[in-house]
Amino acid sequence: MLHRFANPTRFLRLANAVLPWATSLTVILIGAGLYFAFGASPADYQQGETVRIMYVHVPSAWMAMFAYAFIAVASAVGLIWKHPVAHVCALAAAPIGACFTVICLTTGSLWGKPMWGTWWVWDARLTSVLVLFFLYLGFIALANAFDDAARGEKASAILALVGAVNLPIIKFSVDWWNTLHQPASVTKIGMPAVHSSMLIPLLLMAVGFTMLFVVLVIVRARAELADRRINALRSARIHAETAQSGA
């Protein structure tokens, strides 16, 4: 199954077939999500209107973690099976994940000030998400740090795998330690902790963001593949020229 997409041609064929669908789904879902987030959902019984920050904060947080998991899996596939497309996908996803992490951190801060009474605390949840952001920056920096692209790929892939240990820490930090951040609501068993009128915009935004992630990974992977092809053509041309002058 994986081998089928290891080939850039097949990957691009599939990606280009998916792209228009993912694009329209992104627009529809985020549009509907915004409608529900601002119009068709009530204020919270405790937080009042400030609950509307949740509809961008929580999906961003999920995407920040999902994108990192995606990078870690792609890096593992790239390291073990040497599939060239895997590294391209990991590299394409990193800036997207970093952006979602930034959104998660800033919106969380903007929620925390009026609700908790502080912009930031160094509790386990907030700190581990900040670490996630630095892991993204490290991954991007490392991937571009070497003249030899293959070396950068390997180094950044190892960093991605090592950093993956942070994902369960983020997820379970609110259960393992005392934190200021509240525990998970949506994955809670038993009485739904989020009322359906608030769950609708939350899930719409979450699926919409996921579709946006798919679109952006495809767009960035295409750019990266074209870039590699350009470099390959250039070096082939230089080779050809030196061979000619030598003959």
Binding site: P42, D44, Y45, W116, G117, V121, Q182, P183, A184, S185
Partner: peptide
């Protein structure tokens, strides 16, 4: 010298809570 409110994980409209 500092008091922070801790929010719980429940989200619902006022009417539902009542």
């Amino acid at each position: 010298d500092e008091v922070l409110a801790k929010h719980d994980e429940n989200y619902m409209p006022k009417e539902v809570a009542e």
